[in-house]
Design a protein around this nucleic acid. Structure first.
Ligand code: ATP
Length: 642
DNA sequence: TTGGACCGCCTTTTT
DNA sequence: GGCGGTCCAA
């Protein structure tokens, strides 16, 4: 391939600078992703073993599509390059080198709702209630603990800095954290954060592992480096100990994940971690027309911590972005739907159109309206398939069968039976001796599940409990996750119907889950994939092109569309009213809007409803987002729907 | 011990 | 409009 004609001069330099540490700093749409794709292709073409190249991205979806592009551009061997998120890579490494890393190979991955449930369970057991003071709720607890892990900060510092209102609970929180950590360790459960922490610890403590990993991965690339955290930076440093071959790309203006412990300071600190680092800047935007970039520059130039970059493009022609005020929410939805219909008639393919919003619930009304207009759409972000209750219910049986020490899943499965609550589950687990023994072999598991039938059960739930025991026994013997799910569903379907009014929808989800399960040979793989990728696993199939994309701005990162709508540009919604108090939070909202605006290639609309609607800023009439309010008409034209 | 009724608080972004 | 906590009947 002729790399020089496909890339501009600095991109070409980034692609051909192969050895040693490299920091690529670049604005939106300047070809960072393209550069990484070509860099992968180039490495493979010059004879580097594809398996020794590692591409770390923000979602697994991004990695898959980048590798597919590299393969189609150059060499099909690019498909064999290792790609994924830090978390999926950590999972793979911990499984592969379980002994060296000091974990059981059969460890369970807890997704965020499992983690919340576990913390809730422990909090209740430790009984912090009854106190006058308010104790943080489970979501907040997870966020606090996660922040400490990802920012490498002691709990006390996290409290002082981000949660001063709970600083007085430090003692109790530390106690809870300790209980949480030992509970997970005893049962070989790893949260998302643990995947990274345990990998880091293993790399630090075990020279051999460190050595073997740096040999396995000779060339490492990290996309979206501005949204990595310090823990991830440590991992990158340790994994490249033997060769320093690492290229990271990022844009400080697009840092939008600080709520998850990420910090764009990683970009600034990269040269300290890798003193030999070369710096390459990409400046020309290839995505958007200049009028769109003018608006983006305007949004970000108001930033109080002024970023020096200004985006420019050779596509100087184009209409300026438009700000449209609607009477109420539904008028906003109708405007978007009707405009999409017009575009469709003009021949714009639906996959070149997207609607973005700050929070996933903001699109509910639009979803109904698009339905009425017969416009197919797909939604990204928000509630995840794998985190809905019915999917977790069904999978909890597979988890128990795989790892009977997974008490969390026992609670979930047993409590599906009427008249069994927390107390009864605990009695059952005591009866089974779950906490004391190990159950690895099929034999041991079978006799365990048989013992379930001998539990002195009350008449009110005895029959159901025996059925459940039978289901568990059966699925231990079954190999394929598809067959196992069929067994589970025989028990679970009636329960589903009695519990949920909207069971037809949920039943369809379960059928979908079964279809997904067909792709897997073992329950362990299925469960890991579902946990590591709670939304994608369900959406991987059928990447058709005949639909409009609806997405949170966060999930739209790195993507681009010809025509873009950003809805709910009402102050209090975007920026979110919860982020306007703290300066740093507000700046992150601004960067978020910058990310949104720079997704558009040619047409960009912002809409906001004027009609009174509760929420956002209570008791105040809705006004347009402070980020757009004072932008001159020449840069952002205005229209009102009537 | 479970589960239903009631009340008050909070409401985001994701691996 | 949902979730978490509390109170009470069965
Ligand atoms: N040298 C080039 N010649 C032609 N088109 C290019 C070139 N570089 C990038 N592009 C195109 O510009 C668009 C933006 O590129 P890309 O997605 O790689 O940018 P990015 O820096 O990753 O963007 P962002 O950070 O905003 O997600 C893509 O459509 C890409 O194909």
């Amino acid at each position: 391939m002729d790399y020089e004609s496909e890339l501009n001069e600095s991109q070409y330099r980034a692609v051909t600078t192969i050895d040693g540490p490299l920091l690529i700093v670049a604005g939106a749409g300047t070809g960072k992703t393209r550069t990484l794709v070509y860099r992968v292709a180039r490495l493979v073409e010059t004879g580097v073993r594809p398996e020794s190249v590692l591409l770390l991205t923000f979602t697994r979806r991004a990695a898959t599509s980048m590798l597919a592009r590299a393969a189609s551009l150059a060499d099909s061997r690019c498909q064999r390059v290792s790609g994924g998120t830090f978390h999926s890579m950590a999972y793979a490494v911990l499984r592969k080198y379980a002994e060296l890393a000091g974990v059981e190979r059969s460890f369970t991955v807890l997704d965020s709702s499992d983690t919340e449930d576990l913390i809730d369970l422990l909090r209740r057991q430790m009984n912090f209630r009854g106190k006058e003071r308010r104790f943080p709720r489970k979501r907040t607890l997870c966020a606090i603990f996660s922040m400490a892990a990802n920012k490498l900060m002691p709990l006390g510092d996290v409290l002082k800095r981000y949660y001063p209102q709970f600083a007085r609970e430090k003692g109790d929180l530390e106690q809870l954290l300790n209980a949480f950590e030992s509970y997970k360790r005893e049962r070989q459960m790893l949260t998302y954060d643990d995947l990274l922490v345990r990998l880091r610890d293993a790399l630090e403590e075990n020279q051999e592992l460190c050595q073997r990993l740096s040999e396995q991965y000779r060339y490492i690339m990290v996309d979206e480096y501005q949204d990595t955290n310090r823990l991830q930076a440590q991992i990158v440093r340790l994994m490249t100990a033997a060769h320093d071959n690492v290229a990271v790309v990022g844009d400080e203006c697009q840092a939008i994940y600080s709520f998850r412990g990420a910090s764009f300071k990683n970009m600034l600190e990269f040269p300290e971690l890798f003193p030999k680092a070369q710096l390459i800047k990409l400046e020309e935007n290839f995505r958007s027309s200049q009028p769109i970039l003018n608006l983006a520059n305007e949004i970000i130039s108001d930033a109080s911590e002024s970023y020096a970059k200004r985006l420019f493009s050779r596509m100087t022609e184009g209409e300026p972005p438009m700000l449209v005020s609607a009477g109420d929410e539904n008028e906003q939805s109708r405007f978007v739907a009707e405009r999409i219909e017009e575009l469709r008639e003009e021949g714009v393919p639906l996959h070149e159109i997207a609607v973005l919003f700050r929070a996933s619930s903001h699109s509910f009304d639009l979803e109904i309206e698009l339905g009425k207009h017969g416009i197919p759409f797909r939604k990204f972000g928000g509630i995840k398939f794998a985190e809905s209750a019915h999917i977790k219910d069904a999978l909890s049986f597979l988890r128990v069968a795989l790892n009977p020490a997974d008490t969390l899943s026992w609670f979930r499965a047993l409590k599906l039976i009427d008249h069994i609550g927390d107390a009864t589950v605990q009695q059952i687990l005591d009866h089974l001796g779950i906490e004391r023994r190990e159950f690895r072999t099929v034999r041991a598991k079978e006799s365990l599940f048989n013992r379930l039938k001998q539990f002195p059960a009350r008449a009110s739930y005895k029959d159901q409990l025996i059925k459940l025991a039978h289901v568990l026994r059966t699925i231990v013997e079954q190999k394929s996750p598809h067959a196992q799910l069929s067994t589970v569903l025989r028990l679970y379907r009636p329960i589903l119907k009695s519990r949920y009014d909207d069971y037809p929808r949920r039943q369809r989800d379960l059928e979908h889950l079964q279809a997904i399960a067909k792709r897997y040979k073992s329950a362990a793989e299925l469960l890991a994939d579902v946990a590591l990728d709670p939304s994608d696993a369900a959406q991987r199939d059928g990447r058709g092109s005949g639909y409009v994309t609806l997405s949170t701005v966060h999930s739209a990162k790195g993507l681009e569309w010809n025509t873009l709508f950003v809805i709910w540009m009402t102050d209090g919604w975007f920026p979110s009213s919860r982020s306007v108090e703290e300066f740093e939070d507000l700046e992150e909202e601004r960067r978020l809007l910058y990310v949104a605006a720079t997704r558009a290639k040619q047409h960009l609309y912002f809409t906001y409803p004027l009609g009174a609607y509760r929420g956002g800023m209570p008791d105040a009439p809705p006004v347009v987002s402070r980020f757009l309010e004072f932008i001159p008409d020449t840069i952002l034209s205005r229209a009102t729907l009537m």
